[in-house]
Structure formats: C-alpha cells, structure tokens
Design a protein around this nucleic acid. Sequence first.
DNA 1: AGCCAGGACTAAT
DNA 2: ATTAGTCATGGC
Length: 308
Amino acid sequence: MPAATSGEPGLTQAWRVRDYALGATLGSGQAFRWYPDADAWTGVVAGRWIRLRSTEADDGIVEVTATLAEPVTDWTWLERYLAIDENLGAILGTFPDDEPMRAAVAACRGLRLLRQEPWECLASFICSSTKQIVQIQEIVRLLSQRCGTPVKVPEGTLPQAAFPGPTAVASVGEAALRACKLGFRAPYVLEAARRIDRGELDLEAIRRLDTPGARAALTALPGVGRKIADCVLLFAYGRPDAFPVDVWIQKALARLYFPRARRVTSKRLLQFSETHFGPHGGYAQQYLFHYARTVLGRAWASGADTAD
DNA sequence: AGCCAGGACTAAT
DNA sequence: ATTAGTCATGGC
C-alpha cells in the first residue's frame, strides 16, 4: 500500500494508506514533539524537521503527505517511524470482542503505534512520571532547545533542534536539567545518559532480548519502573505484548471492565491487562488510553458515568 | 485551597 | 506482599 520510494531526492513524499488517523497517532501521548496547527503537524524525528498532513482520499484510504526541510532519496526511516507499513486491520482483528474495546476502536480507528528511537523515548518517559502530557511536551521542548543540535528548517518557520543524545545530556549538569523543569526526574535522566555514554548500557542490545529480559534491563535504571519500561518496550521496541498501566488505564479498566466492584486492586488490573487483550495488547491499550482521555474523560468529569 | 498529573522509591505494616 | 509518604511543579 505504501508508495514506492522514488530514486530522486525530494522534499515531499506521499503515501496512500488504509486506516491512518494522523492526529490520534501523533497526539495520543506516545511522542511529545508533535504540534498541530490549522492543517498539519510539525515535529522533529531523527534530527530532521518534518511537517505531516493527511487528507481523506477515496473510501477508507488516507493520503499522508510529509514535507522535509532538506531533500532525501530514501523515506524508509519515516515510513517505519509512522508505522505506515503496519497491517492495522490484522492487529485490530486480534482485539477482544467486547463493548469497551469496540467503543475504543470506533472512537480512534486508524490510530497506530509509532516506532520511536529508544533513547528519546526512554528519556521522555522518565520525564513523564506524575506529569501531564502538556508538561512533558514542555520538558522535551526545553531539553531539545537547550541541549540539542539545531536542525535545518524551512524559511519562515520556528527554529528547531534535535533531541539531545546521551552524550550531550551527560555533559550538562543536573542543574541544567532541573532548569528544563525535570524536577526530581533530573538525576534519573542524567544517570541513564551517563550509563549509555560510558557504554554500560546498550539500548540496541536490548532489542535482541526477549520482553521480560528487556523489561528487566530497563527497570534496572533508577527512575524506571514497570510502567515506564513498558512504554519504551511498546513505543520504541515494538513489543506488542508490553502493556503500560498508568492512572488513565487503571481508571478505564476499572470502570469499563469491573463496573460493579467497589475497589479493584492494582495487582488484579495488571493481571487482567496481561491476559485479556491478546497478542497485541499494547495496541489495544493505546486505543483504550486515547479513548479514555478524549471521550470518557469528559463523561467522567461531568459525572455521567456514576448516574446509573 | 486542594487535588491531580502516561510513577518510582523507600519505609512501615 | 501490599500500603502510605515523599519527591517537583504547574494547571485547574
């Protein structure tokens, strides 16, 4: 379904894809560098400025168009990042056939899991603990502006910088990280950067471990527990069985699947998350997360769910 | 003013 | 093996 990669260097590329929800994909709290305006999303991936837009083509087919600041001949890296090559229909077909899941898929059909760079994903999610998504975006933006290398942008657009690598982060002090609003997370990000910079931790070697082994390698880092490790496993390493359980998912699972229970223990919810959602549970999790934050969040806030 | 945010860690049961 | 308290900070 993706268009053939052209041999000519170019600034734009378009793909025609079935079921691609660009807004839900870029704006569902997987990655934190994407900002929308009236008709497109702007971000930085792999040190490149990118502008993305999507338009409805004919029945179910979406045209996704990317524009860069510098021409490239090979677009495979972006196609992979955006998961354009993913057979989404086959994944949705493995979801449990129950009412909450049907509602979540109906609400955000076309949402895909990105395939991010492990370091940026890891550092971003270390910064995520007890922060709202808008605040995580601000932290990542400050880190990039102050510690990252500037990237080429089109004339007339805001300056942008790449996400700083482990060596760059390790070379700035904890105080500089705290100035980027990391708070108590600053020493955690710094320690992760140092271990990678010294060669004590190899994020590419983790790719070759099985999921429990990879999870153990990540949680060995200070500031990385089960939830953050599963975010990195899912959003960077593409482990379909990783299922991050955050406060939104906890609330969604409890209210949607255990509506009569007075209280559901976190142990029970974790066990449920591991057994109920099938081989692509992580994908199902992202649908539930976005559905809960968009549709259900307003209903919960208005007390509409406690009215029965 | 108080509570919550894509948690993790430590100490106390 | 589960449960509070603490951490830094901003939004509502």
